[in-house]
Write a protein that binds this DNA or RNA. Structure first.
Lengths: 140, 140
DNA sequence: ATAGATGCAAAGAGTTTGCATAGGT
DNA sequence: ACCTATGCAAACTCTTTGCATCTAT
């Protein structure tokens, strides 16, 4: 990762502006605003480089393809809305997982994902856009 | 799912005998002991049928392809040992996830995976038979 | 000018589907 | 005998790789 190309800037910029984990396809779509001819292979290659470089981190939710978000966000977990499919960051937990695991198991990390309905989709927050536009819409 | 075929019995039997979540490929290999000509497509088709029928459940660990285990095991979570890649069942938790999520978010399910080292691999416990066998290597 | 980065297309890996036929009922 | 379920192979989707060209340094 030695050159600062238009494509790389577009990809990293998209991740930084999104405020939520993005899939390679979403990244491709979003980054094309700044780099129209951007190829999907370039997105994948840059994801790998940015991961190695520590700029971004992979977000693995159970049963879902990997998404990517800024690395500097610190430890946190995710909430996936079943209606709009958007993934939201939620705070780290304070649970003592060492105690939760059976005796003899040494816990060095944990992954937690909550599933449910986000405020927007449960009608508790002002709905400006239809709930079912899926992965594509922004949640500010 | 109306007929009790040799292939289906082999697939379901493999899941029941395994005592751990199996991938489609593992299932294919194991079920071939009873049904030698078994095709991979049949494994996938039966996985779907058995899921619909409620006989098996899908186990999704972050960053891993889906595995399948018996459905009657009840709600629990998983511990993945980084040394031997074993996946162990661990008890359900009592955490109040509704309180953990931000206001307005309705939580209907949660997934938890712990990562670390199992007793066997950390050499702390004289485990003659682990709670569950592993993924990569056979324990018997 | 150099060599890393890109775009395209083809190749892989995993999963699904179409179709003729075997086999459970 | 009927019709679901199967085996094979092709199709599909997602991701990676090869190669000629472009471009940041």
């Amino acid at each position: 990762m030695e050159r600062n190309t238009r494509q790389r800037a577009a990809i990293l910029g998209a991740i930084q502006r999104a405020g939520r984990p993005l899939s390679p396809a979403e990244l491709h779509t979003l980054a094309r605003d700044e780099a129209p001819a951007l190829g999907l292979a370039t997105v994948y290659r840059n994801i790998k480089m940015l991961l190695l470089d520590g700029c971004i981190r992979e977000v693995d939710l159970p049963g879902e393809a990997p998404r990517y978000e800024e690395a500097h966000l610190g430890h946190h977990h995710h909430f996936k809305c079943r209606v709009c499919d958007c993934v939201f960051d939620i705070a780290d937990c304070k649970t003592d997982w060492h105690a939760f695991a059976p005796p003899g198991f040494v816990v060095d990390a944990h992954e937690i994902t909550l599933f449910g309905t986000c405020p927007k989709c449960s009608g508790q927050a002002p709905l400006s856009s239809p709930p079912h536009s899926a992965d594509g819409h922004s949640h500010g």
